[in-house]
Amino acid sequence: MAVKQYKLKIKRFDPERNAHSRWEEFSLSMKPSHRLLDALAKIKDEIDGSLTYRRSCAHGVCGSCAMKINGKNGLACQSLFKDMPEFIVIEPLHGFPVVKDLVVDIKPFLEKNEEILPFLINNTPPPERERKQTPQEQNKILQAITCIMCGSCTSACPSYQRNNSYLGPSALVKAARFIFDSRDSAEEERLDKVTQSNGLWMCHSIYNCVEVCPKNVDIPAHIIKLKQLAVKRKILKQK
């Protein structure tokens, strides 16, 4: 297919050379089937080796190359030129400290997960064979387990941007992944965590998260189910 000219405007930041970020434009000819990640690699290989970004799998399963593309978070490896305008603005994910160019510090984001006990807890002695789980039971977590922790959702969340003590959509989906797993027995402890002041109730159903999720996880639906569960528990306790 025919190549076309594109202009990429990239937000650059090199803490060793300048305390402030700057914009730089690159003109490239790309095929419609090319990924935005291919363009970044082309710039790095052919124009400016210092352009810095994360990448690994290049097909949307590792979550390394999340960035803001024309105002919307997404994976560079999952953004094809056939779907993009001729002028493309690329920035690092908002809401996280910028390390260099398109690389942000994701530690604060990953630490949110640790708060919700992100591992299966089942204190009954394991049976000789697998713990049974019907397909219907498993359906409840099938979306949540696809999360690749790219950070797109949390970065796009206005509640998180305003107050970064908020657990954020990604950690809440992780909580749902375990709370709704029929094999997990720590629902109470997890609900205690997600109903604290930095948890569930900071979600105001703005839906930015679901718009940017590269794995199409219906994040608000998971958060709403958690809210319903939390309310139900509270009412039961009051009775």
């Binding site: 089942n122 394991p126 397909p135």
Partner: peptide, 17 residues
């Protein structure tokens, strides 16, 4: 079986295996 016990959500048969 050990992986399953550690939390791996393997796809299931209708009877839950």
């Amino acid at each position: 079986i050990e992986l399953e016990h550690l939390g791996v959500p393997f796809s299931r048969t209708t009877e839950g295996k």
